[in-house]
């Protein structure tokens, strides 16, 4: 099995988001592997251990993303690839990310590509499906169970509160939903071994990609934080007075009716 996992470096879920100058401030923030990608990495390792083969984790980003790749290697991935766009591109979007990944993956003969269902920062959930489309392979999103038998694949996917069972075949791209597995944390021997595992760094040139080909199609108009939640209010008086007051407030203050 030739397995690839798409990994994204995202803000730690415990970080407080600070927006200033129309941008999210990254100074001093902690970064992690996108939590949904961790399910993908774990699944890839389990499948490799069961079926043999090799797990390669791939990310697009800057030098800083090396740390997340090392963590994936420490978890048990075999190789890592950093497609470093730091010097070439100011921005990435779903289109450009999928395009870059497809150029990298097109001749790799991947049997299985795993990704997170969404990244917790952008939250688009588009890169995986777009990539599958560019590569001309099947894809299934939000999977919670993945069974592989030869080239036949049986999948359970989450469909917002219910689940759907379907069958397909390799080569395939799936995106991982919570519940797929319990991601391991790197063991100390894993951490020490990760230092010696190959981590390849590529730039757009190495993939014969022209900067014009990956010009972003999404324009970010504004970035702002959700409004602060206002304090609640307890209405007083008897029931009919409370209802009256509520209707009044919904009309005059909340302006929803």
């Amino acid at each position: 099995m030739n397995i690839f996992v798409l990994v994204k470096r995202t803000f730690d879920t415990e970080e407080k988001i600070v927006v200033s100058g129309g941008k999210i401030q990254e100074d001093g923030a902690e970064f992690i592997i996108n939590p949904y990608d961790e399910y993908a990495i774990e699944e890839a390792i389990q499948k490799r251990d069961a079926l043999g083969g090799k797990v390669t984790v791939v990310t697009i980003g800057g030098e800083d993303a090396e740390k997340q790749l090392r963590t994936a290697l420490a978890m048990g991935a075999d190789e890592a690839v950093l497609i470093n766009t730091e010097d070439d591109l100011d921005e990435l979007d779903q289109y450009s990310s999928a395009y870059i990944l497809s150029e990298y993956l097109k001749d790799k003969e991947a049997d299985l590509i795993l990704a997170g269902n969404v990244a917790i920062d952008g939250g688009s959930g588009q890169v995986g499906p777009r990539l599958a489309d560019l590569l001309g392979i099947n894809y299934v999103t939000t999977v919670t169970s993945l069974e592989i038998d030869g080239t036949n694949v049986k999948i359970v996917r989450d469909i917002e509160g219910d689940s759907e069972v379907l069958e397909t075949s390799l080569p395939l791209l799936v995106t991982a939903q919570q519940g797929l597995n319990e991601p391991r944390y790197p063991s100390l021997p894993g951490i020490m071994k990760a230092k010696k595992k190959p981590l390849e760094e590529l730039e757009l040139d190495d993939l014969d990609i022209d900067e014009d080909d990956v010009e972003v199609k999404v324009e970010t108009v504004e970035i702002y934080l959700p409004p602060q939640k206002a304090a609640g209010r307890v209405l007083e008086g008897d029931l009919s007075a409370q209802v009256k007051e509520l209707v009044n407030l919904l009309h005059s203050e909340a302006k929803v009716i």
Binding site: R70, T71, Y185, P186, I191, M192, A194
Partner: peptide, 17 residues
């Protein structure tokens, strides 16, 4: 170093989980 931080992280997760 990054390795030392990762070791710390693993220990922390072990304690928490």
């Amino acid at each position: 170093t990054d390795e030392q931080k990762m070791i710390a992280q693993t220990t922390q997760e072990y304690v928490t989980n």
